[in-house]
Computed example of a mutant assay.
Amino acid sequence: MSSETQADSINEERLNELVETSLVDLGATVHAALAIIGDELGLYAALDEAGPLTSVELAEQTDTAERYVREWLRSQAAGEYVTYDPDTDRYDLTPEQAYVLADKDSPVFMPGAFQLVSSLAKIEPDIREAFRTGEGVGWHEHDEDVFHGTERFFGPAYGNFLLDWIEALDGVAETLEAGGRIADVGCGHGAPTIRMAEAYPDATVVGVDYHEASIEVARERAETTGVADRVDFEVATAREYDGADYDLVTMFNCYHDMGDPVGVASHVRETLAGDGTWMIVEPYADDRVEANLTPFGRLAYSISTVACTPNSLSQEVGYGMGAQAGEEQTREVVIEGGFTRFRLAAETKTSLVFEAKP
Rank of each mutant, 00 (worst) to 15 (best):
V264G: 07
V249L: 09
C254N: 11
F252M: 13
E270Y: 07
G259N: 00
G263P: 11
A273P: 02
T271D: 02
L248E: 02
D247N: 13
Y246I: 07
L248G: 07
A265N: 04
I280N: 15
L248M: 05
P261T: 09
T271F: 03
T250F: 11
E270Q: 14
E282V: 11
V281S: 13
I280T: 13
M258W: 06
S266Y: 04
D260Y: 06
M258S: 07
M251L: 12
D260G: 00
D257M: 06
D260L: 01
A273I: 06
D260P: 01
M279G: 00
V249S: 08
D275H: 12
G274D: 15
V281H: 03
V268F: 01
M279V: 02
M279K: 05
I280M: 15
M251D: 09
P261R: 04
R269L: 10
V264A: 14
E282L: 02
C254R: 06
D260S: 02
G276E: 03
N253G: 05
V268D: 01
R269G: 06
V262A: 11
R269H: 15
Y284I: 07
H267K: 11
V262R: 10
Y246N: 05
T250N: 08
Y255I: 01
V264E: 05
M251N: 14
Y284C: 10
D247R: 11
A273G: 15
L272R: 06
G259V: 01
V264S: 12
P261K: 04
H267S: 14
P283I: 01
T271L: 03
E270R: 12
A265K: 06
G263E: 10
G276R: 03
D257A: 12
Y284P: 00
Y284R: 15
M279T: 01
G274H: 09
G274Q: 11
P261C: 09
V268A: 03
P283A: 08
H267L: 01
Y255T: 10
E282S: 13
G274S: 13
G274Y: 05
G274I: 07
M279E: 01
D275A: 14
M251R: 02
L248S: 04
G274N: 12
G276W: 02
C254T: 12
M258N: 06
N253D: 14
L248D: 04
N253P: 01
V264N: 02
E270A: 14
T250G: 11
D260A: 06
D245N: 14
D245R: 12
V262I: 15
G259L: 00
H256Q: 12
M258V: 06
T250L: 14
S266E: 15
R269P: 02
M251C: 12
T277M: 03
G276A: 07
N253K: 08
D260T: 01
P261W: 02
A273N: 06
I280L: 15
L272P: 04
V281N: 13
V262W: 09
G274W: 05
A265V: 11
D257H: 12
H256I: 00
W278V: 02
V281L: 13
T277A: 12
I280H: 03
